[in-house]
Amino acid sequence: MMAKRKISLNELSERVDLTLSNLSILKTGKAKAIRFSTLESICKALDCQPGDLLEYVSEE
């Protein structure tokens, strides 16, 4: 989604007011949970839906 909107991690972190390390945690899939407020601000910055950012993968 970041590539589609041609936005870098630095720029996104400025727009959503999240640190680079937190964004990196989210990007690399290491995050255990995400607040709705964070999800909302990222969707707003990238002009997309939560479904565009989240994907369910079965642990099997």
Partner: peptide
Amino acid sequence: QNENDLTV
């Protein structure tokens, strides 16, 4: 705490 640290 780990879960909290990894909550963005």
